[in-house]
Design a binder for these strands. Structure first.
Lengths: 354, 354
DNA sequence: CTGAAAGCGCTTACAG
DNA sequence: CTGAAAGCGCTTACAG
């Protein structure tokens, strides 16, 4: 209690005092910079432990000019893939939030229907100085190549929207596809009668994306099986995304059976709805995916009954924040974050937050 | 381009240079501290405008010892009101996040069934030095008295869970009760047949809380009316929350009509479910509110069909963050933030995030 | 009503 | 391998 000169120092100063070194040396240890003898380093490390020292991020940020760059590798927005507007919005939001902390983002957008463009953008990223990557691994092989290179360079990467399991990503943030299909089936079973025929509609140009749809279909069928429902479940795979192709395929499928209800495994449900309107079959029950304006319009008109949605905006936001929390705060990140399975109808869509 | 000595200053220094004053004076203006001549103040204000100056919150936090205290005035958690665990969790989360920015929280918990305890806690808050308040205005009159006193003292306050409209709160964060009832009816109409009888169950001890339930009932009935459904909608008001009272009231109501489905306007739906189990009526359709463990258990057992939930945890989180953003960053706050209307079933509950 | 100076806890050259 | 010193952009006494 005498002059307090023994205590009362904070942070690096206190560590320096205890270790009998200068704060510059403490800083070197703290930031894993070279040029410290093993002995000194060990001493300082032990003091850091003992003090349970947490750096003051305000002071750090104030004095440092260092900036981190994150790369964003997702599909570009087009009329056909309006969906990606939402993750992008979440990404922008995260960017605004962490920019004051010295983070910059750079977008590398690719064409969802063109593997080559994905590869090109991925290489651009590797050619630049980047500290973290957020990506939608749409193309399995190309994505794996890219991320294993990131791994070698110790660049953390986060998957959103779809996962590549056995990959050492920092984390995956997105839907549990199987269970969202299962949920769709549960809703469906309320709307159909015992023997009503159901049609599952998978629409996708790219074979890689198709896997996701099949996973949802699997969950959908599992529900009917698990609950011993006798509804026949038919399916149609549409390998082109333009409306003419959709129309043709549906014409065929709808004439093969007396379909009562349709389960569309992705956001293309608006094409199906359009078809039903044009062919005067709006009495059919329709469940599909994603909170897109077109889909909502059909929801309002009672053509679509329910949409299942998985907060794409939040996926983008959380993806960036995961990188940030990991890199800046050294936080532990959950390897998997499944998004909630949200049910949207005419009554609650106005309250939905992506 | 000569020695750059004309530019290159940042923040307060640059403002001080342009205004030909010291940075201390700039700081006084920036923080609305007294002791600056009107003329100087105006000059400095205009320069701030011109520069679109944004203070560096890192520097501010680093140099300031000031701390803000927020008071939290919500019901205490009891077995009967497990619900409030969730907002509290969100509040704790927000606290952890903004604590480094110099914010401290203090909880003032009251008994939901005891107005006097609310009053007592409210007075405690007024007796302490507090910079912002988050409250659940369960008791209309007492809440109004309290918040008008806050208003006089220029202490901002945020409502969560339920609103008192014509009050000058910083904002309301919570459900749109009418529309959540409406949503419940929409789900209900899928599960019942044309003429099935429906029972609305309102359970609440406190008359004030009862208003909220009636608002949901209103929405519920409106849906059936708007869509010209012919289902008879009966109702039972239960003015005691213990199970015996619930049982008795339900026995009566269920014998008056052949009820096919029940809409329970709050989290007490678990009592109703328990009753149905005990009386062997689990074939009834049940829709209720809130993601509580008991309710989820009945959801899993197929006794409850759907729960409507409005992210109580997020309400708490957002409430605190609204105060923080307003007070620390001077951000503009939306006066109303309606929570999404989430639909929980057996299939998606595991993915739900409060 | 105003200003000079110290200090918040870090990082960053620079010197040795 | 190590240290002394300046500086990040604010706030806070203190002096006038």
């Amino acid at each position: 209690m005498n002059k307090k000169q023994e205590k009362e120092l904070n942070g690096v100063k206190e560590i320096a005092r205890r270790a009998n070194v200068s704060i510059a040396t403490v800083d070197r240890v703290l930031n894993n910079r070279p040029g410290v003898s093993v002995k000194t380093k060990e001493l300082i490390d032990s003091i850091i432990q003992e003090l349970n020292y947490q750096p003051n991020i305000f002071a750090r940020r104030l004095s440092s000019k260092k900036i981190l760059e994150f790369a964003v590798l997702i599909p570009k927005v087009s009329t056909e893939t309006e969906y990606w507007l939402a993750p992008l919005k979440g990404i922008d939001q995260a960017e605004a939030e962490i920019q004051p902390y010295g983070i910059t983002l750079k977008q590398y957008l690719f064409d969802q229907n063109d593997k080559a463009s994905f590869k090109r953008q991925a290489n651009q990223i590797l050619a630049s100085e980047v500290n973290g990557v957020l990506l939608a691994p749409m193309f399995l092989e190309e994505s794996s190549l890219f991320t294993s290179e990131c791994g070698k360079r110790k660049i953390p990467y986060v998957f959103i929207n779809s996962d590549i399991p056995d990959q050492k990503s920092l984390c995956y943030i997105g839907p549990d596809l199987y269970h969202s299909g299962y949920m769709g089936a549960h809703l469906m079973h309320y709307l159909v009668k015992a023997k009503d025929d159901i049609l599952v509609v998978n629409t996708s140009k790219e074979i890689d994306n198709h896997h996701h749809l099949l996973r949802k279909e699997e969950g959908f069928r599992a529900y009917f099986k698990d609950n011993r429902k006798s509804n026949p479940v038919h399916k149609v795979d549409i390998r082109d995304t333009n409306y003419t192709a959709v129309k043709k395929a549906l014409n065929k499928a709808m004439s093969d059976h007396t379909i009562r209800a349709l389960f569309v495994t992705n956001s293309r449900v608006s094409s199906v709805a359009r078809y039903l309107v044009e062919t005067n079959q709006t009495d059919k029950i329709v469940i599909g995916f994603d909170f897109l304006q077109e889909n909502i319009d059909y929801l309002k008109k009672d053509v679509i009954d329910f949409l299942i949605c998985q907060k794409p905006q939040e996926q983008g936001y959380r993806g960036i924040m995961a990188l940030y929390n990991h890199l800046v705060h050294g936080a532990a990140i959950d390897p998997i974050y499944f998004m909630p399975i949200d049910i949207i109808s005419k009554e609650n869509y106005a309250f939905y937050r992506n």
